[in-house]
Amino acid sequence: MIKIENIKKSFGDEEILKGITTTFEKGKTNLIIGQSGSGKTVMLKCLIGLFQPEEGRIYYEDKAIQDMNDDEQRTLREEIGMLFQGGALFDSMNIEDNVMFPLRMFSSQKKSEMLTRVNEVLKRVNLENVNKKFPAEISGGMQKRVSIARAIVNNPKYLFCDEPNSGLDPRTATVIDNLIQEITHEYNITTIVVTHDMNSVMEIGENIVLLKNGLLVWQGTKEDIFKTDNEDVTKFVYSSDLFKKIRDIQISEQ
């Protein structure tokens, strides 16, 4: 479980996060949604420690990140898996070395044991026989899957995904979404996904947080999202042509 209390973050005079308080639950896929510029990625980067919020506290389980010493923060980071928007695979390493990287850095396992674990997670993300290929030699969807494999290879407690579907075709995007949800349940981890993709919201949104102009304006589940009369939610959902057409068909059928 991750809890945030009143976090604020500015860049120069521009206030990006204006005091957000919420909880992300364990064993669920928690989604941060909102339009471009709403503060989603900044919030994610605050959560993983790449940005320091000016105000507020971020709790991992019961301990605030601000109260942790350097060693505790390092240990915490070893428990975090991250799927970046572009995959962020290391170009100079092949797929096997990319996935093995966290193990090499933090575990004292023998190379054969590490290799077994690497093959296990690659199989889990439905990738086999790509071990010796380089990131540039595989497709975007495969790169995302390798990135997921790297994120989970060290058995993390927390998984963060920054727009995991960007640049993918709808079918591959659904595969990635489902994979993220399956892994969340299988490993019982706290997963936070930043997205503006309504398909992802409908596929895996077990706890959805909607941001607008740096403020949390709505929180609920994928089931709640069509029931609410919150204006911001309605605007966000029906900004998609597909959902607008579905709504029009439903109205005309009634």
Partner: peptide
């Protein structure tokens, strides 16, 4: 610089390196 642009440096930092 390329590692910075493609978030590879962020990936290292997130891993606690």
């Amino acid at each position: 610089g390329s590692m910075r642009v493609t978030e590879q440096i962020d990936a290292l930092e997130v891993m606690g390196i």
